[in-house]
Measured scan of single mutants.
Amino acid sequence: MASQGTKRSYEQMETDGERQNATEIRASVGKMIDGIGRFYIQMCTELKLSDYEGRLIQNSLTIERMVLSAFDERRNKYLEEHPSAGKDPKKTGGPIYKRVDRKWMRELVLYDKEEIRRIWRQANNGDDATAGLTHMMIWHSNLNDTTYQRTRALVRTGMDPRMCSLMQGSTLPRRSGAAGAAVKGVGTMVMELIRMIKRGINDRNFWRGENGRKTRSAYERMCNILKGKFQTAAQRAMMDQVRESRNPGNAEIEDLIFLARSALILRGSVAHKSCLPACVYGPAVASGYDFEKEGYSLVGIDPFKLLQNSQVYSLIRPNENPAHKSQLVWMACNSAAFEDLRVLSFIRGTKVSPRGKLSTRGVQIASNENMDAMESSTLELRSRYWAIRTRSGGNTNQQRASAGQISVQPAFSVQRNLPFDKPTIMAAFTGNTEGRTSDMRAEIIRMMEGAKPEEMSFQGRGVFELSDERAANPIVPSFDMSNEGSYFFGDNAEEYDN
């Protein structure tokens, strides 16, 4: 993207840094990872977990959730003011799984939030270390993106479920800051804005008074975040219109849905970061690795190297396929839920299948599930090659597409044709070009129609051997075009429920 120079890199967003050079960025990201790792080690000690239990991804998720809940100030305040039966607002906890007599047992633990905050700050040299908290939120978000298709949420806001490739980060909490905003897809931002506008339509006082002023500035800020994701002048001009509207209503909703559809071809720039579970960072720190000293990046080879040398386990339900569970977590670790499966298959070195073909449910185990038949197995999170994460949407291309997802959002900077089903997408653009945004709409449609099938995206960008740390010898991959490109292809993934 041309304006790259004016933006802070995501590592800076990730670490609240002012302008830093590459070495400083690597050190501050490393410091953040160190903090998460030290916190995780301490929690495993508190909970008396064995090494194996500490490497269980379900335990990692519970521990991450506990610290996120302990620092969720708004919710904590709300819980104190609106006490609900049987919930102690000062405590947080969740299921911890232990191996007892050759069987997995679930144990519900409860801790004072104050105590968890103390352990977290102690692991982070006394700081609140917001960057580390956001990092864990993005890992949870990436896992949700890989596990669930947001059909219901899309339909509720009037969008087409086939636009799911635009929904990265749709389950990120509001408090995820600049680093969170960077990884949100165009569809996620559109959905947040539509929800806001709908509230304004239904509630006369939404934009009024002292609160209304705050609401208005939040609305304009979200519009600017979305505008910054678009790469064409016409899309940005249309966002200006939406932002400046005196009284946002149905016309703005129409414009936003139009823009979301246009992003299936004229893709937005959305950041991709490899955020790993805390149970990967903990053992690495415990083994003596100093992330701050060595430096770390979320968008280069580092996460690949770390996963190459990590042992992570997962509980497996009786009829689940461990290899499929591994694929789910591998995609989440690489922030690749909406990437082209052919690119992923090449990088991973084994075939990556669409969601609907995987015999696996989510990673988390519900409290009512029976533990008797639970097994555990090693997650295979290694890769054959590594590639640089991208934040450009890439230019655009036609490809055989599917009944489910009709476009992709690249996660890796790797040369390819970008699949999208042009006739299906263009069919949504018939007729409606009147109104105050008509010239911009016409211009956007013209650009979409001009998108050429034979153009290559990320020209000359390749993948790298894991021994090639400096990215000196790019390998331009070859793809098996007979395979499906979309992950949520004609899909039956479970729906995400809060």
Rank of each mutant, 00 (worst) to 15 (best):
M1P: 08
S3V: 02
R19P: 02
S28A: 14
K31E: 15
D34Y: 07
G35A: 13
Y40I: 06
T45N: 13
D51A: 12
I57E: 06
N59H: 12
L61W: 02
T62K: 01
V67Y: 11
F71V: 11
E81N: 12
P83E: 03
M105H: 12
E107Y: 05
V109A: 09
K113I: 02
I119K: 04
H140S: 12
R152I: 01
T157M: 04
C164Y: 02
Q168C: 09
R174K: 07
R174Q: 06
A179T: 02
V186K: 06
T188A: 14
V190S: 11
R195A: 04
G200F: 11
I201R: 00
D203H: 03
F206C: 11
E210K: 09
N211W: 11
K214T: 02
T215G: 12
C223F: 09
I225K: 05
I225W: 11
L226H: 11
R236F: 03
A237N: 07
M238N: 12
E244G: 12
A251C: 12
D255L: 05
D255F: 04
L256I: 04
A260I: 05
K273L: 03
L276E: 04
P277R: 09
P277D: 08
D290E: 14
S297A: 07
D302P: 15
F304Y: 08
K305T: 06
L306Y: 09
Q311V: 07
Q311P: 00
L315I: 14
N321T: 01
H324E: 07
M331F: 06
M331S: 09
C333G: 15
N334H: 15
N334Q: 08
N334K: 02
S335E: 05
D340G: 11
L344Y: 09
L344T: 14
I347C: 11
T350V: 10
G356K: 12
R361S: 04
I365V: 10
L379T: 08
S383M: 11
T390D: 02
Q398N: 03
Q405A: 11
R416V: 02
F420L: 10
T430Y: 03
G431M: 13
T433C: 09
E434R: 02
D439R: 04
M440T: 08
I445S: 09
P453H: 11
E454K: 13
F458I: 10
R470T: 00
N473R: 15
P477C: 02
G485I: 00
F488L: 05
D491T: 02
N492E: 03
E495Y: 02
D497W: 01
